Simulated scan of single mutants.
Amino acid sequence: MYGPLIDAHIHFDQYSLPAQARILEELKRFNIDALISVSTNLSSSKKTLDLASQSPHIYAAAGFHPEQALPKEQELSELQQLIFEHQEDLAAIGEVGLPYYLRKENRDIPLEPYIEVLESFIRQAAALRKPLALHAVYEDAAIVCELLEKHSITKAHFHWFKGSKAIIDRLKHNGYFISVTPDLLYKERTEQLVQMYPLTHIMVETDGPWPFEGPFQRNMTHPKMIHETIRKLAAIKKMRIEEVYSQLYENTKRFYL
């Protein structure tokens, strides 16, 4: 028997049309109440808003994913205007953050312009009182924390988070949320994070269509995988699975919906 769940971070617009249809058709079967569908740029944000208008189970977030070349000034302006005009239709601003992996590939990429873009989204989130869906891992998370603290942001979600104990403690102290993916079933690092973080501030996600390994290898990433994540999470926390389902659901509902 499946408890109810919400996929707290999925790139639904990146799935093929047949895959989108399959997932939506199977939501009820797998007791999936909602998908928090994040965006990667202006075009993606428009698609995500359109998808959300077609299904009561899709909740849109609009933003600019940092692991790509910086947006042109015109695109950034249009994206932030879109967010302003559709603020009532948006569950959050995201995915936004800093380009950790892009800079690992190319050390010559300057960080400061990305910080400026991120801060512009943080200011907009503060003005519109919208939650932030964040891509900020390892040492980048400390920079993002400074910006969030500067603008008194309390509703921050660090998706698929990875980082040191010091930054984990800082996130906990600030009351920020993290989320974990199905890699909890085969990544020791993710298991250690779950052990350290309070269940009251954890969500679960797929980051689909990103593929997973272990028991999910060669399978299309589907929100139903989260049920396996929750079983593992309950075992790590040594809690009744019904309690874990309930807490995770309430966490995500309170944060986004």
Rank of each mutant, 00 (worst) to 15 (best):
I143L: 15
L82D: 08
F177L: 14
C145L: 09
A133W: 00
W160Q: 01
S45M: 01
A91I: 05
A166Q: 15
N251A: 04
Y186P: 07
G94H: 00
V38A: 15
T206E: 07
K72C: 09
A91H: 01
E78V: 01
R231S: 14
F212W: 11
E149V: 02
L148I: 03
F84T: 14
A19M: 00
F30N: 14
Q81T: 09
R189H: 07
Y256A: 09
Q20G: 07
T48Q: 06
H159T: 05
E149H: 11
N106P: 01
Y100S: 11
K232W: 00
H57K: 15
L128W: 10
Y2M: 11
E250D: 12
E139K: 13
P71R: 12
Y176Q: 11
T221V: 02
F64D: 04
Y186T: 13
K187Y: 03
R218S: 15
Q14R: 13
Q124V: 09
P18Y: 04
K28C: 01
L147Q: 13
E243M: 12
Y138W: 11
E149Q: 15
F84R: 15
R189F: 00
H151P: 07
H157W: 09
E75S: 07
S45C: 08
H159W: 01
I109H: 11
M203V: 05
Y249L: 15
W210F: 14
L148S: 04
L49Q: 13
G214Y: 03
S179R: 12
P211L: 08
F255D: 11
K46M: 13
Y15P: 01
R123C: 11
L184Y: 12
H222E: 15
A91V: 10
H159L: 05
G208Y: 00
W160S: 14
G94M: 05
L147K: 13
I178H: 10
Y186A: 09
F30V: 03
S45D: 03
G3A: 12
T229Y: 02
H222I: 01
I178S: 05
K47H: 08
Y138T: 01
F158I: 03
E88D: 10
T221E: 07
P209A: 06
F161C: 00
Y59A: 00
R22G: 00
L35S: 04
I236R: 10
I241M: 14
L148P: 02
I202T: 06
E250L: 12
I236E: 08
P209M: 07
I10G: 03
N31E: 01
G175Y: 02
P18G: 02
R123A: 06
E73T: 15
E105S: 14
D140Q: 13
I153F: 04
A8C: 12
S164N: 08
M203T: 13
A92Q: 02
D183V: 06
Y138E: 14
I36P: 08
L24V: 03
